[in-house]
């Protein structure tokens, strides 16, 4: 890949020719405040916080400006600071301010920006809070939308469109009334939303949060057990319970993405109805058994059927929850038993 050299606040850095100034800065550990930028998505340019100055050219937003050989970029300066501060203060003063009650407390981009800029109480008090009291949308069983916390970065809209190709939501109305909306502002559950939750993980603030969110005390790297795709997953654990799941961005399979099952479908793990040992029906009731007992029984029944009715009497139905390799072995096994009647739940 072609490289260019540019100066970022007196630091000479090398960047990919296709990169934007913001990407180059973040890659080199230089923080430029930003809210609507997300590395997975096309730049939007709405929050105006990532403003920088290219010497000799003036101000530009770094999330859209491409790097160029030899340019000198300033990430701070009197004009930048003033504009950025005003933009941040306006966002903060119009944002729900009870951080301690927010599920995203300590994991919020707006908090990061406030901390970076440094908020002065006196300055905020000069501004008027333009009251917006919009109803919460908790129609989706997996996540809550709180438009009062929304900063209109559009990340959810772009995620739904660019990453998932669903387009369940879009910007609606304009001016101060602008909001993220489904058709006619109907509950999200009535839209074409697939509940994948990709928008929820990307929301920089607490406008999109999982239902009953609990923070894990630690995370365990795993592979999603739902299907053969093999998405990399981090399971959040609290005590001996799974309380969250997130995609592993380093996994080559899913690059951090998950579907609705992988992301929100972990409750079965700790469910009291979950089977943890094989069950064998004895005298009309299922009783717990060991794996050896169960497999012995299956073998015996197979043999019995084979002898009585011939091998063709056997059939196997496999599951999408196992891998391709396991499915391959499964059909091998059945064929070795002398039957070609092999099927799969995905065909149902």
């Amino acid at each position: 890949m072609d490289k260019v050299v540019l100066k970022l606040d007196d630091l000479e850095v090398m960047a990919n020719k296709e990169d934007t100034i913001l990407q180059a800065a973040l890659d080199h550990g230089i923080y430029i405040p930003h809210l609507c930028y997300h590395p997975d998505l096309k730049p939007f340019g709405g929050c105006r916080l990532c403003v920088v100055e290219i010497e000799g050219r003036g101000l530009t937003i770094s999330c859209k400006a491409p790097v160029e050989e030899g340019i000198a970029v300033r990430t701070e300066g009197p004009e930048i600071d003033k504009m950025r501060r005003v933009a941040a203060e306006l966002l903060i003063v119009n944002h729900y301010s009870e951080c301690l009650q927010c599920a995203r407390n300590t994991d919020c981009k707006l908090q990061d920006i406030a901390a970076y800029i440094g908020i002065e109480e006196g300055r905020l008090q000069r501004l008027k809070r333009t009251a917006r009291d919009l109803p919460l949308d908790d129609s989706n069983p997996f996540f809550i939308r709180d438009p009062n916390k929304c900063v209109l970065c559009g990340i959810c809209v772009r995620t739904c469109e660019e990453i998932n190709g669903v387009g369940a939501i879009d910007f609606a109305f304009r001016g101060l009334d602008t909001r993220i909306s489904t058709l006619k502002d109907k509950p999200i559950v009535e839209s074409r939303c697939e509940s994948c939750g990709e928008c929820v993980v990307r929301c920089p603030v607490g406008a999109l949060v999982p239902q009953n969110m609990r923070k894990p005390e630690r995370e365990v790297k795993s592979i999603c057990p739902y299907c053969g795709t093999g998405c990399g997953i981090y399971l959040g654990i609290r005590g001996d319970k799974i309380v969250s799941a997130r995609g592993d961005r380093d996994s080559v399979v899913n690059k951090g993405q998950l579907c609705v099952k992988g992301r929100f479908g972990y409750h079965f793990v700790n469910h009291p109805d979950r089977l943890t040992t094989p069950l064998i029906k004895r005298n009309g009731v299922f009783v717990e058994a060991t794996w050896d007992e169960a497999l012995d029984l299956v073998t015996a029944k197979f043999k019995e059927a084979q002898e009585k009715y011939g091998p063709e009497a056997l059939a196997g139905l496999s599951s999408a929850r196992v891998t391709n390799e396991e499915n391959y072995l499964f059909q091998k096994l059945l064929r070795s038993l002398g039957t070609n009647s092999v099927d799969h739940c995905a065909r149902l």
Binding site: G167, A172, R174, S181, T182, L183
Partner: peptide, 20 residues
């Protein structure tokens, strides 16, 4: 909803544009 189908865009896009 019909406009969305005819224009090949999602319903939210139609509403987003209309409400603009």
């Amino acid at each position: 909803v019909k406009v969305a189908q005819l224009c090949g865009v999602t319903e939210s896009k139609v509403f987003g544009a209309a409400s603009f």
